[in-house]
Computed example of a mutant assay.
Amino acid sequence: MQDNKFLKHIWKKISIGLFVVFYGFAGVYHFISPETYLPVIPDWLGDPKMINILAGMAEIIIATLVIIPDTRKQAGYLAIAMLLAFTISHIYFIQLGHCAADVCLDPWIGWVRLVVIHPLLIYWAYRISNS
């Protein structure tokens, strides 16, 4: 029974660590390579450059807040809200014919990102918020 508790504790630490690295890197990448994100931000949302900056900052803030146990729940819920907002870009990418700027992907990739990966990221954020 003690081994099971230990494994759960280790898995929780690994999950939190991976979450921090994933969102920290994703946030920084908005600043390193904005051309990756700008084509999938619809103009009707507003200034794509500003939205990209805000998205990058949000991901960095979320990664930072997850590190602190007292703010982890809020960080998880912020991540869920952000991921729900990002759904717009995933749908827009599919509407663009799975091509944005110079990047074209097989149509199934856009759908897998929207229907499988995105919900898994939301679930991960939910689990983090309850760690």
Rank of each mutant, 00 (worst) to 15 (best):
A55L: 08
L96E: 14
W44F: 14
F25T: 04
S89V: 00
S33Q: 13
I80P: 01
L120Y: 05
P48L: 13
M57Y: 04
I61S: 10
R127L: 08
I122W: 11
D106C: 03
S33T: 05
Y92K: 04
A81V: 05
L121N: 01
R72T: 01
D47A: 09
H118Y: 05
H98F: 14
V116A: 14
F25G: 03
N52H: 07
S129F: 01
M82C: 01
L54C: 10
F86T: 01
C104Y: 02
W111T: 04
V28I: 15
T36K: 13
L7M: 11
F25Y: 14
K13M: 11
Y29N: 12
I91A: 14
V115Y: 12
N52S: 14
I80L: 12
I41W: 05
I60A: 13
T87C: 13
T64A: 15
N52P: 01
I117Q: 11
F6A: 12
L96R: 08
Y126Q: 02
I91K: 11
G76K: 09
E35P: 01
P119M: 08
P107W: 02
P119H: 06
Y123M: 13
L38G: 05
Y77A: 00
L54I: 12
M1R: 04
I60K: 10
W124M: 10
M50W: 04
N130T: 13
K12T: 01
I14Q: 09
T36R: 12
T87E: 11
D43G: 09
G110Y: 03
W11Q: 11
T71M: 13
Y126G: 06
I88G: 04
L7H: 04
